[in-house]
Every structure is written in C-alpha cells, then in structure tokens.
Design a protein around this nucleic acid. Structure first.
Lengths: 336, 336
DNA sequence: AGGAGCGGTTGAATCGTTTTAATTCTTGGG
DNA sequence: CCCAAGAATTAAAACGATTCAACCGCTCCT
C-alpha cells in the first residue's frame, strides 16, 4: 500500500515541494529543464495529487452538487448531462443527488454538499428551502434553482414556464374536440405539478363547456400512473374522461399501460386522448406514441451551471431568473 | 461570508478543539454536560464540519465512485440506486460517472476518483483496465467490476451470465419457430455485447436449419438501433430476418421504432419477432411490449457495494466473483 | 496518608497541498 | 569586475479536523 506525495516527487526530482506544486499549477514560473525533470518524476512514481489537501487549502472543492427529484426520470438525467458538459468545460465535475421527492433526503444532500464545501449547488427543490440556500450563500456556496422559479428574487433560477405548458397541453386537447378532461398529477406541493394544473385551469376557464377533473397521485412515477389509469377503468363509461393530461411522461406511460392492458382494444386515442409532459426519449416509442410538452432539458442544465459559475466568481452579482418556453409535440396519442 | 471552524465552536463552548472533535466522533468519551454545551454551540453557530480536512487526516473519503457505460440506460441507473442504498446504510455516498463507452472519459473518471481518494471504485468497464485497478488497490482503493467478470481472478466482480442470457433469448426465438435470426449489437469490445452473441451462437449451433446474421452497430443506443432497423427495411423481403435479438432494450426500442414507423403495418411480431435485453421499465410500455432478458439490476449494485466494503475493511480478503442468472420475460414482441 | 486508577480534558502533531516572502542564482550594463 | 534586476527556487506558514500522549483532579483502597 504505497502512498506517493509531493514530498516524494520533490525528493526524486531533487527540488523543493514548492517547485513541484508550481510545475503542476504554474509551469510558466519554472525553468523548462526543471519542469521536465519534475514531470518525469511524477510519471515514474505514478503520483496523483490528493484532492482533499488541495481543497482544504483553497476552501472549496471542484465539484458542483446537483439534487434532482428523481434520477429515474430521463428528464432529470438529461438536465444532469447538460450540467455535466458545461461543468467539464470549466474543469469541474458534478455529483448527482437524488431526493426522491423526500424532504429528509433532500436535506441530507444539502448537508453533505455543505460539508464538502462544493463549488455550488443546483437543486430542483421539493420543500421550500430558500432560507437554507441563503445561508449557503452566506458561506460562499452559490445555489441555483433548477426547473423552478424562486419565490425570493435574490436566488437565481432556471426554469420552464409550466403554466404556459399546462395551458398548451389542454388547449390542444380542447382543439381536438375533447370536453371532459382529467389531470393526473401529484403531490401538489411540487410546484411543477401545481403550475401545470393552473395552466390547465386557464385553458379550461375560457371554454365553458369543458370540465376539468383532478386525479391526485402521490408520486410522479410509472407505478402511480398505472394505478390512476386502473382507477379510471373501473368507472362506468359515461363517467370516464375523454382526455387525460398527465403531469409528466412517466405518469402518462403508466396510465397508457393501464388503459391498454385490459384488452379493451384501442382505447387511446379513440376513446381517451392522452398527453404527457417532458417529452422524454421513450415517449415516442410508447405503445401509442405519446404527445407531450417538450422542455429544453440539456439547455436548462447548461444554463444553470453558467449562472452558478458566474455567481461563484463574483458573489455580489445580481440574481437572474431565466425562463424557457415549452413546446407542444403532437403524436398519435391525441390525434383523432 | 462566514466561516465556522471547530476552533470557533471550542471557544464558544469554553473547551478545547480536541473535545469538540470528540463530541462529534466519540461522544461516549465526553461528560454529558460538556456534550450538551458543545452541541448547543454547534447549533448556535451553524457549524458544519469541513470534509476536506477530515479526509486529509484519515486518508480516504466517504464516497464510492461508480463508473457506468451509459447513464441514460435505466439498467445502469437501477444499479446506481441499488449501490446508493447499500452505501447509505454504511454512511457513504456514491458519485456517478458516465464513461459513455469512451476510453478517455473512463480514464478521466478513474483519475478523478483516485485524486479524491475515494473509499472504493465500482466500474462497468469499457477498456481493459485490470492493471489500473490493481494499481488502485495497491494504493488502498479497492475496486469491484460491475456487470462484467474479470479476466484476472484477483479483482472481484458482480455480473450476470450474459452467455446464458444470449442463449435464453435465441432459444426462445427458435422455439417460436423463427429460423433467420439477426443479432444487432456493438461495439464488440464491450464484453456484454460479445457474450450475448456467443450465447446466441450456442443456441443456433444445435439447430442446423437456423442462421445467425450479425449486424454490428457502434453504440448501444436508441439512435443506433433505429439506424439498424432502417437498414433492415431496405432489404428485399426475402433477405430480411424473421427474428431480431438486440443487444439491449435501448437498441431494441430503436429497432422497433424504425420497423413501425414506415407504415408497413404490424411488422412486429408477425413478420419479425424482436427481443431485447435488460428488461428496463420502459420495455413493457413500448409500441409493442418488448420481450427481454431480465437482470437483477438493483441487486447487482447492492452486492457490489457489499463486496467493496468488505475489501475496504480488510484489503487482504480474497476476491470474489458473483454471477447472477438472467431470466426470460416474454411479451407481445415475440408472440405469434 | 499515599498512591493507584479512572474519567475527563487538553495541546500539539499530523495529514498533503498551495502560496508567500525570502533567498539564491544569472545575466547584462556600466 | 561589480552591481542591479530579473529569474528561479526554497522554506515555512496555512488550511481545519482528528488523534494520541500527557495531564488534571477525584475517589477508593490499603
């Protein structure tokens, strides 16, 4: 069990440890001959520098913490990839935390990231954590909300207009001639869920003959969607909706599975139209290709990192709120 | 921008820094009164300990590094979740690195993890990195291969028998009366891809009237699958396979999209049967629900962490090779 | 009364890197 | 031939938590 430190490298190259450090961080300050000598000593010994020591010295790590609501949702892994790419360009890495829509887990990850003195935090919040984020900033760790606008304007955010998205979805259903619409989503504490519903309400409000039924679920997952879909099937045909707006694509795919499974034949879209949200890759490959609301997920991640790095470089900079617009994608699941 | 250190806590509680440290790590050594005093000082100041300093002292971090071939593949996020849960039970966290089937990225993550002096490394390798892993171990960082057996018996591994899985898939196709089978997968350097093909060959070998055509692709992705599917459609009908075994579900879903898109009507399973591998959640929700080979993904992650922790605790322990058996899941895509 | 033993606490040393001020070495100009 | 200026290098301090040997004050035992 060998441990190689700068001290060993210095000794082998016949220089001081300071010089070794300079070779790694400011090679222009060191003569070419010395650089060469130190470099080969590094290679010979297989020296790899100790990040902990380095971090300790400069107070912060070279990692960005990202907390998402659900790693299994491709929408979030897409955000993560966008963030990762942008971070890599600045020589940073991203650690991904999964809150699973759970306050404790969310809080645990925030503690962890604070212990690690991360370069910054990106978070798609579940609970209201504005206070927590402000405290982080006071400690020199900037934070940016992802996929969520902040109530407090002093914390930056990158989001998509979910109210507009909700309206887009339901306006489309109405334009297809649907009148009894059901919204399947939950928990309502998740801002995205509430906003998409609000958008749906706006669309319904201007059409007096259209009704909107809300079917709450306890998580945005395939399983929860399947349960909600099964529930709808138990209703007498007259009480079933003729269109369903699911809070995201995972839920929509669950609903779809339930509706198709019963051998009721082609229920979608003939009897029930179905639209989801996020436009994940799998949506187009579903039993019935799924209409959805597309969000620029990778771009969200990229932009969030950009803002974060700006704030990390200059903590006095003003907070920014970036809002992207969503886009309707029509596929078979809502076409007559 | 406030910084709170043990020194500040000690001062406020009127004790030495050593005592503060003991309160956090060995409270049984400190009198109840002092513990209470220090704890309240910690709360008052909102002290959060600096991980870098702590790590520097004891030489290793409380993080496990996990490198996977593709974060977008649910099979790997499932493994990650299994690993995460098991690690959390031991007070550790997991950082996820995505090699994207790219040697450079893989190597970069290994460097990074070595710099971070992680507690251990779990890796689903692309290149042959046995030497690299042995060096890591010499430095006190244990490593376990995931979803891959090792050529060198001195490094532990947790995998699934891909040869058996490949045979299972093709035996099933043959049992359904298929005779002209195509295997779509690549790059062949990926062990899983090669093993599944080998299994397929075994199944074909005992049936003289069955042919196996190999269609290589350059990545295990939906896109690559779609391209391969499109290529098949360009062939005259007589030269098309009557069954396709895709190296994983992402590829299978791409193939499926291509085959269905052309308006050729229900090509699957009537004209071409299709089976994938991994049994990701989305497989059952596909246009045509997909037959697949199921692997115990979360269990793989859990087991890998277990082995890793054992090795971290006692570096002299003998390496273990755990091999799980895959399972055939039949759905509409291969049913007559 | 004297010492052994014990719980509780302290202070200094330590981990490995970076940075700084100070020092040595070169070189060119006068 | 000496000195100033600049380049190259060094030694030491610092980051913050943990640990370990030493120490203090008690009680209990003989």
């Amino acid at each position: 069990m060998t441990v190689v430190s700068v001290r060993d490298v210095a000794e082998r190259a016949g220089v001081s440890v300071g010089t070794v450090s300079n070779v790694m961080n400011h090679p222009e300050k060191v003569s070419a001959a010395t650089v060469a000598r130190v470099r080969s000593a590094i290679d010979d010994l297989g020296f790899i520098r100790n990040d902990a020591a380095r971090q300790l010295r400069d107070g912060r790590s070279k990692t960005i913490g990202l907390i998402v609501l659900d790693v299994r949702n491709p929408f979030f892994t897409d955000i993560a990839r966008g963030a990762e790419d942008q971070a890599a360009a600045a020589g940073l890495t991203v650690t991904l935390g999964n809150s699973d829509e759970n306050t404790d887990r969310e809080s645990t990850y925030l503690d962890l990231f604070e212990q690690q003195r991360v370069h910054g935090v990106l978070i798609s919040p579940y609970a209201d954590i504005t206070q927590r984020l402000l405290r982080l900033r006071k400690r020199g760790i900037p934070a940016v909300l992802v996929d969520r606008t902040s109530t407090d304007l002093s914390v930056s955010s990158v989001s998509v207009d979910d109210i507009a998205g909700g309206r887009l979805a339901v306006e489309h259903l109405i334009a297809q001639g649907r009148r009894r619409i059901a919204y399947i989503g939950g928990p309502m504490e998740i801002r995205q869920v509430a906003d998409r519903l609000e958008g749906a309400r706006h669309a319904v409000a201007v059409n007096p003959d259209v009704t909107l039924d809300v079917i709450p679920i306890d998580a945005l997952s395939v399983i929860a969607g399947r349960a909600a879909g099964a529930e709808i099937l138990t209703r007498p045909a007259a009480q079933r909706p003729d269109a369903i707006f699911a809070a995201n694509d995972l839920v929509a795919m669950g609903v779809l599975q339930a509706l198709m499974m019963q051998g009721h034949g082609m229920l979608v879209p003939e009897q029930i139209a179905l639209i989801g949200y996020d436009d994940i890759d799998f949506a187009s490959a579903a039993v019935v290709p799924l209409s959805s609301i597309r969000q620029p997920s990778a771009l969200i991640g990229q932009t969030a990192v950009e803002i974060l790095l700006d704030e990390a470089a200059d903590p006095t900079i003003e907070a920014r709120q970036v809002v992207f617009q969503p886009e309707l994608v029509v596929r078979a699941s809502t076409r007559r």
